[in-house]
């Protein structure tokens, strides 16, 4: 029996050491990516190419989901608010929920599952097919040439995608509340404008998306680069990217929100 306990404790210790080691390894990789970003900054066409894959190809899902999330918010918000005779506040409700929380978080989750997984799979496959090794043998650093452009493209696209998501959502809320239900258009916008604060709501939302962009792409490139060079390795890494990103986005969102809106409410 005591032997079992020792084995159990050893198992816990092993896992803790492993995960700390991996965290350190990931941080070191992240620093290397930042240090070796010079090449992609000088040759911006490398980033543009990746912007197409991370940004443009994620656009469709962001546009459609943004529109529907906004429409649902408008519908549900109207149902509840009209009981209190405050249906003109539906614009405020839609805008605040989107700009503060739903925009950054949902866009971040969609970004992780569409672009993040693609980045991991692509880098992982390049590793499996020895493309990264080949690049190293050609005296080209794969971190500078492959990882850094993808990282920066992700960091640039994420805030833009989240902004498009929020704008699309507000448009969806407008469609439902004003066009379909018939809430007064002027009141819809003026109520929204009188409550939504540029500095506290919009800028804070953008800051959040920047954090999410860095986190998701850093996880995606690391998982891809670190993947076991087999088919299962790459599929496992892709799954880990999506799961870890989702958890990190939600956790970060709580931490950032509690910092940003401290003393309010």
């Amino acid at each position: 029996m005591p032997r079992r306990i020792v084995i159990g404790i050893r198992g816990i210790g092993h896992r803790v050491i492993d995960s700390i080691w991996r965290l350190g390894y990931a941080s070191r990789f992240f620093m290397l990516t930042l240090l070796k970003s010079g090449t992609s900054m000088r040759r911006f066409s490398l980033i543009i190419r990746e912007l197409y894959f991370t940004g443009v190809l994620t656009l469709i899902i962001i546009l459609v989901s943004g529109l529907f999330v906004g429409m649902v918010l408008g519908l549900q918000g109207y149902e509840t608010l009209q009981k209190y005779g405050a249906e003109t506040a539906v614009g405020t409700l839609v805008a605040l929920s989107l700009v503060r929380e739903l925009g950054p978080v949902v866009a971040g989750l969609l970004f992780a599952s569409r672009a993040g997984s693609a980045i991991t799979a692509e880098i992982g496959l390049m590793k499996v097919t020895e493309q990264l090794d080949a690049m190293g043998m050609m005296a080209v650093d794969p971190i500078a040439r492959v990882v850094a452009p993808r990282f920066w493209a992700g960091v640039i696209s994420m805030p833009l995608l989240a902004a498009i998501f929020s704008a699309m959502g507000i448009f969806g809320g407008y469609l439902v509340a004003v066009v379909l239900i018939g809430v007064d258009e002027g009141l819809f916008w003026s109520q929204m404008q009188s409550v939504v604060d540029f500095r506290f709501d919009i800028v804070n939302g953008i800051i959040k998306t920047c954090f999410f962009g860095v986190a998701v792409t850093a996880i995606a490139v690391f998982e891809g680069y670190d993947a076991q060079p087999t088919a299962e390795g790459v599929s496992g890494a892709t799954t880990r990217t999506v799961v870890t990103s989702a958890l990190v986005i939600l956790g970060l969102d709580f931490v950032l929100t509690s910092f940003m809106f401290r003393g309010v409410g």
Partner: peptide, 16 residues
């Protein structure tokens, strides 16, 4: 390394 090169097992062409 610029003066040497390596042909990998399955070519390792850059697929993109």
């Amino acid at each position: 390394r610029r003066k040497m090169s390596m042909l990998f097992q399955f070519g390792a062409l850059f697929t993109d």
